[in-house]
């Protein structure tokens, strides 16, 4: 039984991780708390839903389209809003992203009402397969594996490509990166786009089994904040491990002391870990 609980948490955790990786990119590189991150996820889900409803493409197949769309949304957000508040004092940037989240969330309500939307004929159904005595839902499995692969893809991109290294350099020292000839403005735009691409992908992976409505992503964004901090800001590997950890903690905690208290355990874990590791599990 506990094995079943852990595997469920693990599958959830990979999806949490992908959402958190997106958040940790902007947070670590630009020191911007993007309160509209959850709304990017929401727009990704609506995007996947409407492509399915209008054209008939399953969310899993339309994933690249949604990724490109939300990448664009991220870049646009940077160019229109973030660029202007990047060097402002205090919490101004936070306020800007908060306003943005209000706009994005309520636009979905304005266009498509607050009613639940569901992808009713998903490509991969909710049937379970049995592996080593454990029941694993196929759609969860596909989402988890997809999320894990994409997280690795982001890691490879950051580590191996020239743009990725430039992102890393900018996050370490903006002024030095500029002196080395890096166009930091462009890097910031790409980072924001990449952050959007991560949640766009996560949205596509989840769209087949998650009810889609304006408040759907509130929990994901709160959890993403905790995961990002737990893993250490700007640390992609940290976000992956912390995401998986939170997924398992949530699942096991829910099993041991009751489902209604599962988030209590998640938030407690953060408070405890942060006492021992004040800069997150993998912070330096």
């Amino acid at each position: 039984m506990i094995g079943q609980v852990i595997i469920n948490g693990l599958l959830n955790g990979f999806v949490y991780a992908l959402v958190a990786v997106g958040l940790t990119l902007t947070w670590g590189v630009m020191d911007i708390i993007n309160f509209a991150h959850g709304e990017f996820l929401l727009w990704g889900m609506y995007g996947a839903f409407w492509i399915w409803a209008l054209v008939g493409l399953d969310p899993l197949i339309s994933l690249p389209i949604v990724v490109v769309l939300i990448f664009g949304l991220g870049v646009l957000t940077y160019l229109i809003v973030i660029r202007r508040v990047l060097n402002a004092q205090g919490l101004t940037a936070l306020l800007a992203t908060f306003g943005l989240s209000m706009v994005l969330k309520n636009l979905t309500q304005f266009f498509w009402t607050a009613n639940y939307k569901n992808v009713t004929t998903p490509l991969v159904g909710s049937k379970s397969i049995k592996i080593a005595g454990l029941f694993i839902r196929q759609d969860y499995l596909v989402a988890a594996v997809g999320a894990l692969l994409l997280t690795f893809a982001v890691m490879v991109f950051i580590d191996k490509t020239k743009t990725g290294v430039a992102i890393k350099a900018t996050s370490m020292n903006k002024a030095a990166a500029q002196l080395m000839g890096i166009d930091t403005g462009k890097i910031f735009a790409i980072t924001f786009g990449l952050s959007g691409a991560c949640v766009g992908a996560a949205a596509s992976l989840m769209a087949s089994f998650t009810p889609i409505y304006p408040e759907a992503c509130a929990l994901y964004s709160t959890l993403a904040f905790v995961i990002v901090a737990l893993g250490g800001f700007g640390n992609i590997k940290g976000a992956l491990y912390a995401g998986v950890l939170i997924g398992i903690v949530e699942s096991v905690g829910g099993y041991l002391i009751g489902t209604s208290f599962k988030y209590l355990v998640v938030f407690l874990i953060y408070l405890v870990v942060i006492q021992i590791r004040p800069r997150g599990l993998f912070g330096w």
Partner: peptide
């Protein structure tokens, strides 16, 4: 109900922060 008020409102917040960072 439509969320229109929140949309305009959010946009105003963004506008204020973009033009005057000190509030």
């Amino acid at each position: 109900g439509s969320g229109l008020d929140q949309i305009v409102f959010g946009a105003l917040i963004v506008l204020v922060t973009c033009t005057e960072p000190r509030g």
